[in-house]
Amino acid sequence: MDTTVQKALTILEVLARSDTHRGITELAGELGLSKSNVHRLLSTLIQLGYVANEDGRYGPTSKLWELGSLIIGRYDVRRLARPIMEVLARQSGETVHLSVLDEISCEVVYIDKIESGQAVRAYSEVGGRAPAHCVATGKAMLAELPDAALLALEGRLVPHTRRSIATVEELLRQVAQIRRDRFAVNHGEWRDQVRGVASVIRGADGRVAAAIGISGPAGRLTQDFIRRTAPMVVEAGDTVSRLMGGSRPAAHVA
């Protein structure tokens, strides 16, 4: 175990559980560390935005609360989305995914799924990842980001099939369409013979919490199928959003 990381997290836990801000001498005595070591670790935590220094006494910032809220929000969205996912699975006959966006890696993380009853179906697993610009749930969530954040993806859009988005210009073009339609489509951009359609789910703060979508073999997810099921997917996303206290789509920032 990395002892530096362990010490930093221990300090953070002590500060989070304390009713008042703490001084370096006090922390050093409680944790059995040197004052110079505590000072160095606190300086790092301040730089990372987890700790604030107020007149020589230290306490946690709201960043811990923000991260905790994101995690709790994922548990809430899974619980609330599950019945709606089951309905969508019955309506479509295809696999239904619930995904969240990891903005740092620009990947989606599958946090829940309902398998299709079909013998041939799209493969994925809960906890698995996929490039956000190549799958429907990912593209739906990317469309909610400001254009400036999308422009920052220049050079990171690795194609995985001949249909994959490979440039920021193409991403922005598709995003404009997704914002108008309120759903995104994957035309075999991650796996050549797998298609999907997805829409976002909003939390009580109006921000995107997750995306819900269906996927399956291209032979079944034809253009006609997508045209018929896209409104179901959008309604599923809106229903879960309402359950989470979410509202209408927010205006996009260019």
Results as ranks from 00 to 15, higher is better:
R227H: 13
V208S: 01
P146Y: 10
Q177A: 12
A122N: 10
D205H: 06
A176D: 15
V233Y: 00
E103L: 08
R191F: 13
A148Q: 11
R191Y: 09
R220A: 00
L153S: 07
C106W: 14
V126G: 02
R156N: 09
D181N: 15
R207E: 03
D147P: 13
E169H: 13
V233K: 02
T137K: 10
A204G: 07
F183S: 06
I165F: 10
I104M: 07
D181Q: 15
E103S: 02
R180L: 12
T161W: 11
A204F: 14
E189N: 03
G117W: 07
D147F: 08
Q174T: 12
S215V: 05
V175H: 02
E103D: 04
A132S: 11
A140M: 03
A166N: 09
G203K: 05
I104V: 15
F183I: 08
G138C: 10
C134T: 14
V108Y: 02
L157Q: 06
P217V: 09
R129A: 06
A140I: 06
I114T: 00
Q223E: 00
L150H: 00
W190H: 12
P159R: 06
H160D: 00
A148M: 11
G213P: 08
S199P: 10
M141F: 03
L172G: 06
H160Q: 11
L221Y: 05
G213E: 01
R173T: 15
T229N: 08
R162A: 08
A132Y: 07
G127Q: 06
A148V: 15
E107V: 06
Q177C: 04
Y123G: 05
M141T: 02
E144Y: 05
E103G: 04
M232C: 12
G155M: 08
H187N: 12
E103I: 10
E125A: 12
V108N: 06
E103N: 04
L171V: 13
